[in-house]
Structures are given as structure tokens and as C-alpha cells.
């Protein structure tokens, strides 16, 4: 038996909204420690890694580890029915064929219960080594989201350069070229603050289309941490009370 009660159901709604355009069918691994998932997008360019810690749920029980194959598209449809103030219970019997979702209103005035049919999915688990990155950028998630969105109007590729003092977001398109440079600072204003942890200068190119999809998670966390090393995928990490959502994106290489 697996059962998890989340008092703040909105966070689950936001998580699923943040991944549904990247991955449509995923295996959730449930254990006594956590609910987790790892899934690549269809083109194998981006990877989503989610961990929700059991200890952060109001109630949590998992008698034996289980893999739950879920259509994210259909889960998103059901979660749309849950109110923003609702609590959410996730429940599955051992060797389950359905995932039960129970949404309960704040004053217990209304309860919705749905059984989502589970899928049997092949999983493609990537072995991602723990590694030290050359540069780590911690900045406002909404500011990063805004920069990516605005630069998308110029072209589809973001050139990201980080040195010890600043980070530069540069683009080059048919209409011209441009860049936005932000200097490391410890401003009191969260949208201005930028922390750099750089051992080596890096300069890499990434598809803005994917970064824009990742930035849907900016509703989950005020900060985003970008980890960069030459010639390996960039990691965008959004941490929140319940756990963390990480996105990996393979860099673009010059032809």
C-alpha cells in the first residue's frame, strides 16, 4: 500500500504543469523515502528529474517500493479539477493498476475521488554521474525566465557565458545581435540578486525553446540554480519545501 497526503495540493498541480509539455508518460518510483521520477523528452535532448521527500508530506506510507506508470497528460487533466486550496491524497494498492487521487476542500465541504489508469512503460534511466561544475549561477527564477522569453524574440539559441564577475546571455539572429550581462551582486531585492560560484570560465549554447519550458517551474521556487561545465548538459535546479525539480539540457555544438 502506498498513500501520501499533501496538505498544499497546489504544489503538485504546479509540478505537473511544469513538466507536462516535456514528458507525457513517466514512471513514478515510490519508496518509503520519496516519490521520484526521471524521464527524457521525446527527442532525448532534455531530462526531467523530480524528487519529493516523504518526510515533507503530512502523511506518508509506502509498504513496498513500486513503479507507477502514469500518463502526465491525463494526470494534469485530473489535477485541473482540484482546487488551489485542496489537499491531495495519492493512493495505490500493491501491484496497482490504478492511482487513486482524492481532492478535499479546505473545510471538508467537497471531496473528489478519481482513479487514474496506470500504464506499463519502458523506462530509459540515464546514469548521471555526480560531478563538480565549472560554474554555478544562482539567480531569481522569474528574472531568468523573463530573459529567456525576451531573447526568444531574437533567435532560438542562447549563448551563455559565465566568468567570475558576471553572466552574459547573448543571442544572434536575422534581426541582429545582442546580449544581457548581469554582474554578481548580493542585492536585497531578490530579482536583482545573482550569486556566482565559478572555478573556470564557461561559454555554451542552448536551445531557448527548452529553457522556456523549464522556466514553467519558476512558480515553484523564487530561485533557479544553473550548473555549467563545458561540453556537458546544463542543470537547472528549482528547490522547494517538498523536494526539487531538476532539468538537464544537452548543449548545442557548432557544426
Amino acid at each position: 500500500m502506498f498513500e501520501a497526503l499533501l496538505g498544499n495540493g497546489l504544489i503538485l498541480k504546479k509540478i505537473i504543469e511544469s513538466i507536462k509539455e516535456l514528458v507525457t508518460e513517466v514512471n513514478f518510483e515510490v519508496t518509503s523515502e520519496a516519490i521520484s521520477l526521471q524521464a527524457m523528452d521525446a527527442s532525448h535532448v532534455a531530462l526531467v528529474v523530480l524528487v519529493l521527500r516523504a518526510s515533507e508530506f503530512e502523511e506518508y506510507r509506502c509498504d513496498r517500493p513500486q513503479t507507477l506508470g502514469v500518463s502526465i497528460t491525463n494526470l494534469a487533466k485530473l489535477l485541473k479539477i482540484a482546487g488551489n486550496d485542496d489537499s491531495i491524497i495519492l493512493r495505490a494498492e500493491d501491484e496497482a493498476h490504478v492511482l487513486t487521487l482524492v481532492f478535499t476542500g479546505k473545510n471538508n465541504e467537497k471531496m473528489c475521488e478519481f482513479n487514474l489508469n496506470l500504464l506499463t512503460l519502458d523506462s530509459e534511466h540515464l546514469g548521471i554521474p555526480e560531478q563538480e561544475y565549472s560554474a554555478e549561477v544562482t539567480m531569481s527564477s522569474s528574472e531568468f525566465s523573463r530573459i529567456c522569453r525576451e531573447l526568444t524574440q531574437v533567435t532560438d539559441t542562447l549563448n551563455l557565458s559565465v566568468d567570475k564577475e558576471s553572466v552574459k546571455f547573448a543571442v544572434s539572429g536575422d534581426i541582429g545581435t545582442g546580449s544581457i550581462t548581469m554582474k554578481a551582486n548580493n542585492s536585497d531585492k531578490s530579482e536583482e540578486k545573482l550569486i556566482l560560484n565559478v572555478s573556470d570560465t564557461v561559454s555554451m549554447a542552448f536551445a531557448l525553446r527548452y529553457l522556456n519550458l523549464f522556466n514553467k517551474a519558476s512558480s515553484l521556487s523564487d530561485e533557479v540554480v544553473l550548473s555549467l561545465s563545458p561540453e556537458v548538459p546544463v542543470v537547472l535546479k528549482f528547490a522547494f519545501d517538498l523536494g526539487e525539480l531538476k532539468y538537464f539540457l544537452a548543449p548545442k555544438i557548432a557544426e
Binding site: H44, L47, A250, I253, E255
Partner: peptide, 14 residues
């Protein structure tokens, strides 16, 4: 235009 790499070029499947 730069080419987009694939994640499997960086990480092995387990």
C-alpha cells in the same frame, strides 16, 4: 546554426 546534442551522448543508460 549549432547542432543540438542528445543526452545519450553524455550519459549511459542504466
Amino acid at each position: 546554426t549549432p547542432l543540438q546534442n542528445s543526452l545519450s551522448e553524455f550519459y549511459s543508460c542504466v
